[in-house]
Design a binder for these strands. Structure first.
Ligand SMILES: [Mn+2]
Ligand SMILES: [Mn+2]
Ligand SMILES: [Mn+2]
Ligand SMILES: [Mn+2]
Lengths: 218, 218
DNA sequence: AATTATTTTTAGGTTTAACTAAAAATATAA
DNA sequence: TTATATTTTTAGTTAAACCTAAAAATAATT
C-alpha cells in the first residue's frame, strides 16, 4: 500500500494534471503541497520507481494508468467523506475539507463501499466536484467558469474551483450555493469584473470570484 | 497536539492501568503495542517530558491526569467510530476494531461532537465497552467475568474482554451476543471449564472463553 | 551472599519525509 | 550567442519512530 505522503503526492499530481492538461512541474507540485522543490524531487523519484508516474529529470512528471487509479481512489474517499460530513453530520461546506484531508487516508475497501452505499452513491461532493467511481472513472460534466459567460447570459452554479473557507463564506454571504441561478447583467472588458443577479439582488463581483465559480448554461 | 504514535502509547498505557490497577512496565507496553522494549523506553521518556506520565527508570510509568484525559479522548473516538461502523454502516462487530484503530486518530473536536450526536450519544460500544464522556470520564458498571460465576447461577452477557475476530466469531457460532442470557449448569474445579446454557442449547466452554466474557448478575 | 536470570536502559544504526545550501540544467534576455 | 535568471537536482542534515546489540539495574535462585 501507500504511505500518507505518497497518497498526497499522487492526489496533488492528479489534480494538477486535470488543471493544466500536460506534464506537471516540480515547482507546481511543491507549491500545491506546501513543501520545497527538493523534497518533491525525492518523492517523485520514489513514485517513479513504484511505477506510479513517469519522470525524466528536468522534464516534469506524468501519472501512469496505475498512478491515476490510486490517485482517483484517494479523491473518491475525500469526496465521499465530505458528503458524509455535510449530509449526515450537518457540517457546513466550508468546514469539511480539512477533516476530509485526514479521512481520505483511512485504509479499508469495505469501509468505502459501505460509506458509498450509506450515502446513496452520490455523484458529486458538497462543492459540486464529481466523485470518481470505484474503478477510478470520473464522469466529465460540461461546465464553464462564470468568467466565460457573456453579458445577458445566465447559468446555474454547479461547483466551485477554489474551496477555501474564505471563498465559500463569501458565497454564503451573497446567497450563492450549488443550484443557484446567476445572471450576468454587465461585464467590464478592462478587468473582467461583472454585475450579476442572484435571486432579487444584483451586485458587483471581481474576476477572481468569476474565475472560481463553475456554472452550467442550459 | 499528539502524534499517532504518542496517541497509541497513551491509549495502551491507559488500558494497561485499568487492567492491572498499578504502574505499568516497559515490557507490558512493548507487548501490547507489538514493539521492542527499547522503543518503549524512548517514547516513554518523551511522554514524560510532555508531562503525560511519570516515569522513574526501571520503575514503570503512570499516566498523569492530563495523560489520562488525552488517552480517554482517543478511547472515546475509537469506540464512537465502532458504534458508527456497526449501527450505521452495518459492519459486523468482529470487523470494526481494525478500522477504528485508524479512525481514532482523526483530529477534530467538532467531528467527534457531531458524530456523538448523530449516534445518539451512546454509552457503550459494540463490544459492551463504556464510551468515555467528553471530559474523559468513564462510568464504571459492575460486571463480572463469566469465570467468576458459580454453578447454578446465571447472568446476562454485557461485554467481551478480548475482541479479536476469532473470539467474536466463536461467540456468534454459539449464538452469544450482548444481552444474551447465560446459565452456568456445571463448573469443573480442575480446569475451570463449564457447561452453560444459551437459549435452548447447552454446551461445554473452556476457561479461556469464560475469562473473556463479561456478565451482569441481577 | 553470591550467582544467575530477567528486565530495562543506553548506544548506535535505519528509514521516511522533511529541510538547506550548492551545483547543474534549462529558459530568458541582452 | 553569450550572459543572466529560473528551475530542478544533488549532497548533506534533521527529526520521528522504529530497530539490534550491549550494558546496567533489578529480581530470583542457589
Ligand atoms: Mn491528504
Ligand atoms: Mn470537495
Ligand atoms: Mn491507534
Ligand atoms: Mn470496542
Amino acid at each position: 500500500m501507500f504511505t500518507l505522503a505518497e497518497e498526497n503526492y499522487l492526489k496533488t499530481i492528479f489534480h494538477l494534471e486535470h488543471d493544466s492538461m500536460c506534464e506537471v512541474t516540480t515547482n507546481a507540485i511543491a507549491e500545491s503541497i506546501e513543501t520545497k522543490p527538493s523534497s518533491v524531487t525525492d518523492m517523485v523519484q520514489k513514485l517513479a520507481e513504484k511505477k506510479m508516474l513517469t519522470y525524466k529529470r528536468y522534464k516534469g512528471v506524468q501519472l501512469t494508468e496505475e498512478g491515476k487509479k490510486v490517485a482517483a481512489g484517494v479523491v473518491r474517499k475525500h469526496r465521499l467523506w465530505e458528503v458524509f460530513l455535510v449530509e449526515k453530520l450537518h457540517f457546513h461546506w466550508d468546514e469539511v475539507h480539512e477533516i476530509a484531508e485526514q479521512l481520505e487516508h483511512i485504509q479499508s475497501e469495505e469501509l468505502i463501499t459501505r460509506l458509498d452505499q450509506f450515502l446513496g452513491s452520490p455523484d458529486f461532493d458538497p462543492h459540486g466536484d464529481p466523485i470518481p467511481d470505484k474503478h477510478g472513472v470520473l464522469k466529465r460534466t460540461e461546465k464553464k467558469l462564470l468568467s466565460e459567460i457573456e453579458k445577458n447570459e445566465q447559468g446555474v452554479c454547479v461547483g466551485v474551483k477554489e474551496s477555501s473557507p474564505e471563498f465559500l463564506q463569501y458565497l454564503d454571504k451573497k446567497k450563492i450555493s450549488i443550484g443557484t441561478k446567476i445572471s450576468v447583467l454587465g461585464k467590464e472588458f478592462f478587468d473582467g469584473s461583472m454585475i450579476i443577479q442572484v435571486g432579487t439582488e444584483q451586485f458587483f463581483i471581481s474576476i477572481k470570484i468569476a474565475e472560481n465559480l463553475y456554472v452550467q448554461t442550459s
